[in-house]
């Protein structure tokens, strides 16, 4: 474990916590009387969260952590896997099933057919992988899928007029975690002999590059102290 990877895991954890906080805010909103302005904004405007991206991430974790009970790495590793699995599936459940939260989900805007991402990633994983075994192919599939899983969310943000802070921070943290992982891979390449994982490195690089324009608008909105807005 190195500082880059720990920082990456903590950033990833933060992104999940921000999303859970946002869902909690929406839930607690419904109990209050209506005049509360925050509630009005939250419940009237769409939450800006893409269910498609959340479903893709649940699939990413389900296919990546198949070895959670067979290969024990460390207590930290197992606990983090359980947190990511538990949070991703419960977020999908909230947006799909929870009577309040699902009202803030705008399915007319979140129209990305994520099936078109799953199939190519699966085919690619069958062709390009480190070892042609069931677990390894699904693990590689989870890497390719994670690289593109943010697309429905980024497209939804372009369509969302006012992106609220929590959503912007959620996407930023999600992009930052993989950028920190790239530093971790560079560090491990120079400190561990024979540590070479081209598939992981390239997917991680593609994933981070997909956030490039979001990062640009995110930082310029911070610098100019204006609301985050993505060009359509």
């Amino acid at each position: 474990m190195n500082i880059f990877r720990l920082a990456g895991d903590m950033t990833h954890l933060m992104s999940v916590l921000v999303l859970l906080l946002k869902i909690h805010t929406i839930k607690s909103c419904a109990g209050k009387s209506y005049p509360c302005s925050l509630c009005f904004i939250l419940l009237e405007s769409s939450s800006g969260i893409s269910l498609k991206t959340q479903e893709l991430y649940a699939l990413v974790f389900a296919t990546r952590y198949l070895d959670i009970f067979t290969d024990f790495i460390s207590v930290y590793n197992t606990i983090m896997k359980l947190i990511f699995l538990g949070s991703s599936f419960s977020i999908v459940w909230y947006i799909r099933r929870h009577k309040i939260v699902r009202r803030s989900y705008d399915k007319d805007q979140d129209t990305f057919r994520h099936f078109f991402l799953v199939l190519p990633c699966l085919l690619l994983a069958l062709i390009i992988n480190e070892k042609f075994t069931f677990k390894e192919v699904l693990w590689t599939f989870s890497l390719y899928l994670e690289a593109v899983a943010i697309l429905p969310q980024l497209i939804l943000l372009q369509r969302t007029r006012n992106i609220d802070n929590l959503t912007g921070q959620y996407v930023f943290l999600l992009g930052a975690y993989r950028a920190l992982y790239i530093l971790n891979w560079i560090y491990r390449y120079f400190t561990e002999p024979h540590y070479v994982h081209w598939i992981t490195w390239i997917s991680g690089l593609v994933q981070t590059l997909l956030y490039a324009d979001f990062f640009y608008y995110y930082f310029s909105s911070l610098k100019n102290n204006v609301k985050l807005k993505l060009p359509a």
């Binding site: 895991d9 070895d67 290969d71």
Partner: peptide, 10 residues
């Protein structure tokens, strides 16, 4: 035999 390279990253 050495067990297959377990993926130690999340």
């Amino acid at each position: 035999i050495e067990d297959e390279a377990a993926h130690d990253e999340l």
